[in-house]
Design a binder for these strands. Structure first.
Length: 799
RNA sequence: GCGGACAUGGCGGAACUGGCAGACGCGCCGGUCUUAGGAGCCGGUGGGCAACCGUGUGGGUUCGAGUCCCACUGUCCGCACCA
């Protein structure tokens, strides 16, 4: 036997697989299909770290198993390559971002190949390729034409040091991540996408999907659907004020009103407000506060009373004061609330701070101590015609009444905001819009796509925070596609989330020049059968891509309303000390080093064996060798192969292992599947030999986990063909049961004896034998209860 | 504060709808081979001399609880005044 040398075996098979195209999805649309998807990475300069292979290996096992099960499998990979780190690296080192990207991709790809993933490299996509982003732009144009893409003044993070716009991720504790200068909010006109129009469907359609529960919960919380009522309060100024409340039942307890400092009515009332100066001062204070300060200071409620205008509570006609306070957000609801201090914690705090009356309208708590917010148990009091009702019933009645009076109606609100879809950066997809003084915003004709990124000399933002594209006058100045007159191109680019919102569609037909993918290919491959990715993408990428997909469904560009049928998520891999792996901490493990020392199969095995796939796991370099030892022992089996099929005495063992591995892998319990294979090997080693039939089965079961060594052994044993062309084994349930079983005999719950009985033995007979086995303990006692759990234990309760 | 998850030997982790806790692996101990072993192979390994005791803490349900219920404690993650 030659020694086991992964360093020569693994590259050999990696080349043979690629040359033969064995992992390329077939163009035969009559076969049963399986689309397995992992999140494509951002090709950073650091290369892969030890955490990356976890999801890729996890689904690689599924993909390889599905092929053996006869499916036409699409398991693709690609690069989400636009983004800030590349651009920053380019700025720092004077290399074009495209070149940086090219190098990074080459590195990542070489690493991914060396791990033996069964990706279909013929469908590799790169979001920075004009042939790809042409369709990203196309989708944007479709949204623009239907009013889902629009421009709006939005606050942006302005770094006073760098004099540029920062992404939220670049703002750390209110200061610029890079230079440490103060970050201010400035208003800038930004592209927005109307994801809010899909809020209801994004929420409701989760029901039919096989997503892990915590993903559904997080998405629902993020969308934040709530039902309540919109109510119109009249005011002494004449204008009425709309408020949104989820507790219309507490209207009798509304003792004042609070408006957001940015509320437009305040300016309209300027002449009526005797303390307008004070109000303006508060407003500018609030505007200056960074996000960070606002949350830091959230314990103390501040505000200013509007002197000169009062609101009128519609249920009892009482005049109530109006305040402005930064605890009311302009961006949610109507930007104004009715304050019910007795039954809302924030209103209670505010009322206490300002000495305002607190009225109890729901009995059940102690509003002297704290706001009583429980909706389930309370009963209405001091509330006119709804007094005595439950909260639930009161809500219904008051909404009926408000509707009938024409002063309010039932309303659903969402926390979800529209998506800021613009970056003042270079390394992104150009927005294909032209600004014409005569025609307004004009979309580029589709046949002019892609609008490619022009070459620039400098990648920095301009001094006033515009994209570096703004400096390219030749490029910016163009003719209006509608009227032919002089016009200017949009110089903002799209955010990184754009390219990743539809990439799975491109995999279906990666080189199609005339559509994002052919209808035929989409009909066949979509939806994705199994999508695995990180929890950190739950509320951004996952939600964004569901939104885009629903839009594409609405315009008939894709065949299904949801892109992903099933979603799972891997846990993080932490460094040895229990901290996150990061370059700055200097605790990263490179897969290259592990492959060098142990081989890719060992790395794959260890990464899967480390623990529950969905849970956080801690990397232990010292434990890796256990997986290598296991493979060495599998390799050493070559020396003890004898002829023949599965031996009778091992048949049960093999059937149980086939069942365990088959079932556990489906639940992503790759760790226990591997443990089962290790146990089986222990049994085989005890037997002292392995038959050809047994070896074949063993290698097949192991092959999705450790594809190189199993392919090599298959060849060395001359089992015929390649292991990747074989069929996944099946088990027979009857063969899994053991002929004799051990039954534990308990007396009062304590194990006292063990019985070996035939598996088929009847319950009464087992009980009789059990009593005999512990006869000494039963002497002089009464058996008050006897239980038999078939195949497991007998429990005799005695007195 | 709200939401979610987790807590099991020296370590990573197993344990199906309640049914022999500690599978599998690391480490450790002993043996064997060897000039040597940080390599292989074989055996052992939760604690306690024992009866017994053991799944973060305190209660409960049950013949039986790591698993279910109630109340805590601790750790991690997400969101942060969403009316």
């Amino acid at each position: 036997m030659t020694p086991y040398t992964p360093k020569s075996i693994e590259p050999k098979w990696q080349s043979l697989w690629e040359e033969s195209g064995v992992f390329h999805a077939k163009q035969d649309f009559s076969l049963p299909k399986y689309f397995a998807l992992v999140e494509f990475p951002y090709p950073s300069g650091q290369g892969l770290h030890a955490g990356h292979p976890r999801p890729y290996t996890g689904l690689d096992i599924i993909a390889r198993k599905r092929r053996l099960q006869g499916y036409n499998v699409l398991y693709p990979f690609g690069w989400d390559a636009f983004g800030l780190p590349t651009e920053n690296y380019a700025i720092k080192n004077g290399i074009h971002p495209a070149e940086v990207t090219r190098r990074n991709i080459a590195r990542f790809k070489q690493q991914a190949v060396s791990l033996g993933f069964s990706f279909d490299w013929s469908r590799e996509v790169d979001t920075t390729d004009p042939g790809y982003y042409r369709w990203t732009q196309w989708i944007f144009l479709q949204m623009f034409k239907r009013g889902l893409a629009y421009k709006k003044d939005m606050p942006v993070n302005w770094c006073t040091g760098c004099k540029c716009v920062l992404a939220n991720e670049e703002v750390v504790s209110g200061v610029c991540e890079r230079c440490g200068s103060e970050v201010q909010h400035r208003n800038k006109s930004q592209w927005m996408l109307k994801i809010t129009e899909y809020a209801q469907r994004l929420n409701d359609d989760l029901d039919g999907l096989d997503f892990i529960e915590r993903v559904k919960i997080q998405q629902r919380n993020w969308i934040g659907r709530s039902t309540g009522a919109q109510v119109r309060f009249a005011s002494t100024a004449g204008d009425s004020i709309e408020v949104y409340t989820t507790r219309p039942d507490t209207l009798w307890g509304a003792t004042y009103m609070v408006m957001s400092p940015e509320h437009p009515l305040i300016d309209a009332w300027k002449d009526k407000l005797s303390n307008f100066g004070e109000i303006c001062a508060y407003r500018s204070e609030a505007a200056k506060k960074s996000e960070f300060e606002r949350t830091e200071l959230n314990k103390d409620k501040t505000g200013v009373r509007l002197d000169g205008v009062r609101a009128i509570n519609p249920v009892n006609g009482e005049e109530i004061p109006i305040f402005i306070s930064d605890y009311v957000l302009i961006s949610y609801g109507t930007g104004a609330i009715m304050a019910v201090p007795g039954h809302d914690t924030r209103d209670w705090e505010f009322a206490r701070a300002f000495g305002l009356p607190i009225i109890e309208v729901v009995a059940g708590g102690d509003i002297e101590q704290e706001a009583f917010t429980d909706c389930a148990t309370g009963v209405m009091v001091n509330s006119g015609f709804i007094t005595g009702l439950s909260v639930e019933e009161a809500k219904r009645r008051i909404i009926e009444w408000l509707t009938a009076q024409g002063i309010g109606y039932e309303k659903v609100n969402f926390k979800l905001r529209d998506w800021v879809f613009a970056r003042q950066r270079y390394w992104g997809e150009p927005v294909p819009i032209v600004h014409c003084p005569a025609c307004g915003m004009v979309p580029l004709p589709e046949e002019d796509l892609p609008l490619t990124l022009p070459h620039v000399e400098k990648y920095e933002q301009t001094d006033d925070g515009q994209s570096p594209l703004a400096l390219l006058t030749d490029w910016v100045n163009t003719a209006c596609p509608a009227c032919g007159g002089p016009a200017r191109r949009e110089t903002d680019t799209m955010p990184q989330w754009a390219g990743s919102s539809w990439y799975f569609l491109r995999y279906c037909d990666a080189h199609n020049p005339s559509a994002l993918a052919s209808k035929q290919a989409l009909d066949y491959w979509m939806p994705v059968d199994w999508y695995n990715g990180g929890m950190e993408h739950t509320t951004l990428h996952l939600l964004y891509s569901r939104f885009w997909h629903k839009f594409l469904y609405d315009i008939d560009a894709v065949p299904c309303p949801e892109p992903y049928q099933k979603r799972t998520s891997q846990g993080m891999i932490l460094a040895e000390n229990g901290e996150k792996m990061s370059k700055s901490r200097g605790n990263t493990i490179s897969p290259d080093d592990i492959i060098e020392q142990y081989g890719a199969d060992t790395l794959r095995l260890y990464t899967m064996f480390i623990g529950d796939f969905e849970k956080t796991a801690i990397w232990k370099s010292a434990s890796i060798k256990g997986c290598r030892r296991f493979l060495e022992r599998v390799w050493a089996l070559q020396d003890c192969v004898i002829g023949g099929g599965v031996r009778e005495e091992l048949e049960g063992e093999f059937h149980r292992t086939i069942r365990k591995v088959s079932q556990d892998t489906e639940a992503l319990k790759h760790n226990t599947a591997i443990a089962a294979l290790m146990s089986l090997l222990n049994v085989i080693d005890k037997a002292g030999s392995i038959t050809q039939g047994e070896y074949k089965l063993f290698l097949l079961l192991l092959s999705p986990f450790a594809p190189h060594i199993t392919e090599e052994l298959w060849e060395l044993q001359r089992f015929g063909g390649r292991i990747t062309d074989q069929t996944w084994p099946t088990w027979i349930e009857d063969k899994c049961v053991e002929a004799t079983i051990e039954v534990l005999v308990q007396v009062n719950g304590k194990g006292r004896a063990r019985l070996q009985v035939p598996a088929s033995l009847a319950g009464e007979e087992v009980l009789a034998q059990a009593k005999q086995a512990v006869a000494a303990l039963l002497e002089g006692k009464t058996v008050v209860k006897e239980l038999y759990v078939p195949g497991r234990l007998v429990n005799l309760v005695i007195k």
